[in-house]
Design a protein around this nucleic acid. Structure first.
Lengths: 158, 158
DNA sequence: GTCAAAATCATACTTTCGTGTGAGTGAAAT
DNA sequence: ATTTCACTCACACGAAAGTATGATTTTGAC
């Protein structure tokens, strides 16, 4: 009894679909038998069936599709005494889509270097450093390098 | 040229579906014309069409649907240093001759605020903030605000 | 009350930073 | 083979930051 109800509930969509399909088929057969001329309207007839069942298929799929889960992260602060004991959150870095080079630039920014100095240290042009830091700021959702440093330290990515 | 390609790419699914539908219809008509007896196999015929287009409909829906999202909240631990565990070195501040106001500005700089924002927060002009930060940099013997923050944290004066 | 330091502001100027746009290359993935 | 992505670079422009100089006002100490 209980199992039966359960099964019906779990497969309700399939049941509904099956019944709908049977009904529609029955209806179509009635129409065929009584009103519709076989030959010259056959194309239209087939088209109709196709459309109806396409719609049914779409409806079925929409009903049955399992929703994709999206994780939302809530920060929870844990206080530690030794600053060096703070582990770097590689997962967070990956989540933000920060590349290796960008991370290097971020580290040097937090060391207080200017873009020019960073360029010299990494043997790349000033423009490249600017590009890196600009994309970095977007990924960190900040406007300035000082904010980037503040947020990066808060997120334990440097 | 570019727009054309773009449009085709964006609506590829629709195109494929349309072409598939046309092909299947054509195929069915051929079958009808040559092999299938109209009357007593009509049920089977209609059933086949129904199944085919249901499958197509499902496929279409799965292809086109934006995935349903279901948010799931996950707590994440963020390690931070206990602010109280690092005492502020007032002696060092005095030694460097940093004034009260300058220290305020320094703190706000390390919070990532722009000079403009600092000015608003302290109800003073932008020029005054610049003056403060400039003298601050001299006292800290640094050239930029990022360096100032780095050094200030190292010296435990913020 | 005087004096020095701190705090305020301005003007003008230079430097650095940051964005937008576009583009080329090489490596890895499909 | 084609696409995608990280990395590289350039140029132009606007927005901040920083310096220099000088001035006025507050404040606290002597």
């Amino acid at each position: 009894m209980k199992i039966g109800t359960h099964l019906i509930a779990r497969n309700k969509e399939y049941l509904i679909y099956g019944i709908s399909m049977a009904l529609v088929l029955f209806l179509l057969k009635m129409l065929v038998a009584h009103f519709i001329v076989y030959n010259y309207r056959l194309d239209f007839f087939i088209g109709s069936i196709a459309i109806v069942f396409t719609v049914l298929g779409v409806w079925l799929a929409l009903k049955l599709m399992k929703p994709k889960v999206e994780t939302r992260i809530v920060e929870k602060e844990v206080y530690v005494t030794d600053p060096d004991s703070i582990p770097i959150d590689h997962a967070e870095i990956a989540r933000l889509g920060i590349s290796k080079r960008e991370l290097e630039v971020l580290q040097l920014i937090s060391d207080g270097l200017s873009n020019e100095e960073i360029a010299e240290k990494l043997f790349i042009s000033l423009n490249t450093v600017k590009t890196h830091s600009s994309t970095l700021f977007q990924k960190l959702d900040v406007k300035r390098r000082t904010q980037a440093v503040e947020k990066a330290k808060r997120l334990n990515i440097i």
